[in-house]
């Protein structure tokens, strides 16, 4: 039953992926003009003579003068083969540019997610079980502060404290000596050290809201009849709590994994600028501004793929933890 469900969901995500890619491509095409227009404007600005014939030649070479469907077809058939086209601005294959940045983004996102959960779950459970206790009030107050504080402000404050009081290097994800170095154990440790501050910054508001969600979910479950049944069996409070209400309170959580992924990647643009992190966010923004359509398209497509995978993961997890889902 579960396997059939997983296969069905996997199968469905394929057409869904193509539909999403079409929308993504259409969105990139939507602004008037193309990269050549932007390019010409940049040239004109710097006083260069714009050679219309050369532009047209370039346009033809990149297929920019062809109808939308043809362009899309060229692009997507390349993507399927792993060829994302060439970045106009960098004059490099897109695939060379994006992978490392995407990987770092995903690492950052995953670390943030883990951090958020590790803190939000226990506190949320504590707050629900000890409702209106001093601890609950304390964490609630802390949570609201975390929720209302803008990310970039927190980032600047933490950077100030780290640099002035601890003298640590906080910008980027690697120290200078590892910047261009090949991967090694030392580089991984270095990455871990640099991840701490961005993870805290990015995780604060998510943690705060998750605590509130967990608390509310669990409060809904704590007084359900099945909890009384379990208590009447003679289960200890702790085992009972973990096996029954917490498990059911996790449902809404698991269904949010789907959006957590792309949200963490695209939501970290500001922080990536502030801390100058070599992640996907800033590059995506720049590509969109320059109408560097293949680069931007690749990023957007990957973000979409991440959402689809996230949804898939959360749907499958949901089916694993809640048998009622599988049979619908």
């Amino acid at each position: 039953m579960l396997l059939a469900y997983v296969v069905r969901r996997l199968f469905w995500s394929i057409p869904f992926f193509f539909a999403v890619s079409l929308v993504a491509f259409a969105l990139i095409e939507a602004p008037p003009g193309d990269y050549m227009t932007t390019f010409a404007a940049t040239l004109a600005q710097s006083g260069d003579i714009v050679d219309q014939e050369r532009l047209d030649a370039l346009r033809e070479r990149y297929g920019l003068d062809q109808p939308f469907v043809v362009q899309y077809w060229k692009w997507i058939s390349g993507v399927v083969r792993g060829d994302f086209g060439i970045s106009f601005e960098w004059q490099q294959p897109v695939s060379d540019l994006i992978w490392e940045r995407m990987a770092l983004s995903v690492i950052l996102a995953a670390a943030t997610l883990l951090f958020t959960w590790a803190i939000a779950f226990p506190i949320g459970i504590y707050s629900a079980v000890r409702k209106y206790s001093i601890g609950d009030y304390f964490f609630s107050a802390l949570g609201f502060i975390g929720l209302s504080l803008p990310n970039f402000l927190l980032g600047l404050v933490l950077m100030y404290i780290a640099v002035v009081h601890f003298g640590s290097d906080v910008s980027g994800l690697f120290s200078a000596e590892y910047q261009q170095a090949p991967w090694s154990w030392g580089k991984v440790v270095d990455l871990g050290q640099h991840l701490l501050i961005p993870v805290v910054i990015l995780g604060t508001s998510a943690t705060a809201s998750l605590i509130r969600i967990m608390r509310a979910n669990l409060l809904d479950e704590l007084y359900k009849p099945y909890v009384t049944t379990a208590r009447a069996k003679g289960l200890s409070e702790w085992r009972l709590l973990v096996k029954y209400p917490v498990r059911l309170a996790l449902n809404p959580f698991v269904s949010t994994i789907g959006w957590a992924f792309p949200q963490l990647v695209s939501g970290s643009v500001i922080i990536s600028y502030v801390l100058s992190l070599p992640t996907a966010g800033p590059l995506l923004l720049q590509a969109l501004l320059a109408q560097d359509m293949f680069l931007a398209g690749a990023f957007i497509l990957l973000l979409c793929a991440l959402s689809i995978i996230g949804m898939l993961v959360s749907d499958i997890l949901l089916a694993v933890i809640d048998p009622r889902i599988r049979y619908r």
């Binding site: 359900k224 009849p225 099945y226 009384t228 049944t229 379990a230 208590r231 009447a232 069996k233 003679g234 289960l235 200890s236 096996k243 029954y244 498990r247 059911l248 933890i321 809640d322 048998p323 009622r324």
Partner: peptide, 27 residues
Amino acid sequence: RAIRAIRGRDIAMIFQEPMSSLSPVHT
């Protein structure tokens, strides 16, 4: 611990709503 040893062993209880009194996600 003493009362937990009695619950379910010496004195067991059944409830009104058999649907909501059983955990929906465990067999």
